[in-house]
Nucleic acid binder design. Sequence first.
DNA 1: TATCTTTGGTGTAATATTGACACAATTAAA
DNA 2: TTTAATTGTGTCAATATTACACCAAAGATA
Lengths: 234, 234
Amino acid sequence: MNIYPQASRILLAIDCIIFGFDGKDIKLLLVKRNFEPEKGKWSLMGGFLNSDEDLADGAARILYNLTGLKNIYVEQLETYGKVKRDPAERTVSVVFFALIQIDDHDSEAVRSHNASWITLENRPALIFDHEEMVCKAIEHLKYKAALHPIGFELLPELFTIPQLQKLYEAIYSIPLDRRNFSRKLLSTGLLIDTGRKNNNSTTKKATLYKLDEVRYKEKFHSFWNFMPDSMKQS
Amino acid sequence: MNIYPQASRILLAIDCIIFGFDGKDIKLLLVKRNFEPEKGKWSLMGGFLNSDEDLADGAARILYNLTGLKNIYVEQLETYGKVKRDPAERTVSVVFFALIQIDDHDSEAVRSHNASWITLENRPALIFDHEEMVCKAIEHLKYKAALHPIGFELLPELFTIPQLQKLYEAIYSIPLDRRNFSRKLLSTGLLIDTGRKNNNSTTKKATLYKLDEVRYKEKFHSFWNFMPDSMKQS
DNA sequence: TATCTTTGGTGTAATATTGACACAATTAAA
DNA sequence: TTTAATTGTGTCAATATTACACCAAAGATA
């Protein structure tokens, strides 16, 4: 019955890199493992692909279990397949990249998984090749956010332009010119002025915008230019 | 001994999308299968990952077997993991994206694998989800070639600007303005004038350039703008 | 109630880049 | 020597980007 008898069957893991933004810093959702192997160490949230489960469904399942969220922004990032990457058994891991609105997540589920939101700066050593995966994901975030409107995925439904600017400044660790940033963002036509104002501010209240979902979907794959050109000369 | 007893082990395939350019059209290297399953049908070149082999090495092995080439441009593209994608047995496939200089390949190896260079337009129906993989790869080629200098990977070591332009016109299926294209490419500082001229032309002979390898490596991850902006509004 | 401080919103001039176009030079064939 | 095809370079207007200055709103302070 076995049509491919000679080939070897391998464990297939899924690891998720989950980014959030708290208004100040980009954060990663990491788990302190309370199970073997590497119990007590930090890692990405992961799991194994079930034999009756599509790969994307496996990622969605793992993300849902940890965050209680469905329909979040997920991309497949890269598959890691060094022979020795997991010392216990040959395991190939498919890494997924997720952006979530940090206030939406189910903090009870996060706590029960022994997970925490940790800033990129303060992230601990991670097991296996997870650090490499995180570095790759940070690069991908910087790359993609410069060209496509993925920043919105990290913000609440209603947001202000200064909030958006702080997000981009956090992603790239550089200050941006307020006026040029605002002009650039508004000129995309992706923002809808809700007419409402942000009440969190102690001084002048900023305009609350929402995303134009129709344009967003239509134009997602277009190229934009959210970063100053000087940022792009690596 | 088995630390992950409950998880299922899965076949891991590697499929390679190999692009070439013959001076006129972008072509794909496809194999007509002379083995089961799906014998006689067309597919991507592929194989299974060996248990003692890194994933990237598996891709390099498969590419070497078919083309006789090492050190070619390879990227990991995406991993396909639908449950039913291979009707014979659950198989997850990691797709690699390769660009080669079409004249360099070992045509004897290609023939012995029953493989052919086929233009994108004339490509036959492919097995499993290989058509989806190819579509994704074409999109990736368009995307990446607009922002990073990967076009050179498809050309011989010495090339002319008109050749380069024909390549980009083939990738995007649009005519480009000769003068603007030339200005843009030369302004990157990636081209070195060899002083030599192309003898293939029956009219005015074009200048032969080579790639500035140092700058190419240094600046590969910078953003460029090889396509007119009008091309980028999807 | 005046004014101070902080943050948000918009305008403008200099510069750089892009797009559309014209003209001259080279080569082989007629 | 003319012709046709192709290559190389220049120009100008339109557009985009940068760097910068000013005004408005709102709570804090006196």
